[in-house]
Write a protein that binds this DNA or RNA. Sequence first.
RNA 1: GCAGCCUUAGCUCAGUUGGUUAGAGCGCCGGUUUGUGGAGCCGGAGGUCCUUGGUUCGAACCCAAGAGGCUGUACCA
Length: 491
Amino acid sequence: MGKTKQPKPIDLARKPRGFPDKRENLIHAEQDMIEKITGVYRRWGFEGLETGAFEYADALGKFLPDDDRPNAGVFALQDDDEQWMSLRYDLTAPLARFAAENWQTLPKPFRRYAAGPVWRNEKPGPGRFREFLQCDADTVGAAGAHADAEMIAMAAEAMRAAGAANGEFTIRVNTRRLLNAVLETVGASEDSTRLTILRALDKLDKFGVSGVADLLGAGRMDESGDFTKGAGLDAAGVKQVLAFAEAGRSTRSETLEALGQAVGTGEEAAAGLAELDAIARGLEALGAPESDVTIDPSVVRGLEYYTGPVFEAELLKETVDEDGNTVRIGSVGGGGRYDDLVARFTGEKIPATGFSVGVSRLAAAFSISGVIGELNGPVVVLNMDREDPSEALKLATELRSTGIRAEAYMGSSGMRPQMKYADRRGAPAVIMVGSDELEKGVVTIKDLKEGARQAAAIASNEEYREARPGQFEAPRADMIARIQAILEADQ
RNA sequence: GCAGCCUUAGCUCAGUUGGUUAGAGCGCCGGUUUGUGGAGCCGGAGGUCCUUGGUUCGAACCCAAGAGGCUGUACCA
């Protein structure tokens, strides 16, 4: 037909990477997770707060050093007054802005939780999205280590509530002060060197000791042959940093002792040790088990606004996708102390600490390992009379009126496709009323789950169709009760 | 961003040394005499072989550039 080339309709149906479509099961899993996590936050005394998706870019503080455009990591656009606005990349920066704006009237310390989408313009991958849900709790205006300990203990409880079982996760705790102390002892004074060392440390669990040693020294070659330049430490420096990074032991007190040896006697080192010691005591008082929370000197976290303790929630359980590949999920949450963030707005230094669960990533991990259950669909009333669907409509209405989730089949296909439809919807049961049933004053009900169980023992297709497994007739007046019985048995 | 690999139907892949209307399996859609989901039977839809340019009488196949994807790595407030 056309000589001019038109894009085929299907070519237009493309989804930007990292912006996930979510169907029933995932939506439900995520919402359920958010309810459970915020339930924990509320029980610990935090109050809800919602803020908008956009913040002024300068409120988020993301500008390239000598550029008036927001950094590439955020999605940004200019308002009609030319001001740059950015989609929030976390829930902490908006909280800091809110706290600063309303500081006069807030109860102090201000304890709030928040849940919602955030956006990051980064390269997506398995469990990594450009739009994803976070669920945060923060305490603003509390300087003591007990506030950090509370965050950490509550984080463990939130992970449990979200569905991670004993031994499937861990919260790893460290403090920036100790990291600074180590950087001092190896004489890393240049900012770029310090960053490279910290980033290398952060990869201990990913690349192992030898990989990190390479990154601390000359550099590391990845498996595609690409080379990453290292921090350029000499052998003694590499050894010192690794000794620190590997000071983790199985209990918090043992780790603290090992760290005491590895970190030296400087002022910053002493402050860091004291900080972790205070947190450890807080954790004891809060009853956080050793298996939930460990002290791990290789935890670094985001490099910008954390000023003291940092912590990270990690899924330990291996996630294996349906092709049998192990998918690396990594961190599913994190947090720490950020004593200078609110000061950017108020000028007054206001200490704060918080924790964030990456709900989308956690749900993705569960989804990849196939542990998210299928939800039941509605009861489907088949339409047996293509000329007049009234009977099906009536039956569906009757079911709904008692609170049962039900629908009449709305398509125009025959019996078999209608059954396939019900199957695909995950319907617990279908109801059939044709001329036979009408005459006899009965309904035919098919329990699809029970039918599937029985069908497993049937070999031939002929027999299968004759047996009509899971199917029975009931007086019309008993329909509701029989369906309710099926729904209950299904719970 | 950098590096490696990849691109033929919804998916997984065949496609002979370059040779007429490009195939399979699975999946999908429908029918199978009121009226039955999985694996029976019958039928059907679906592909400018990523794009553009070149070589050639002739290109899914050869060459070049581009785009997109996957993986690793960097970055990740």
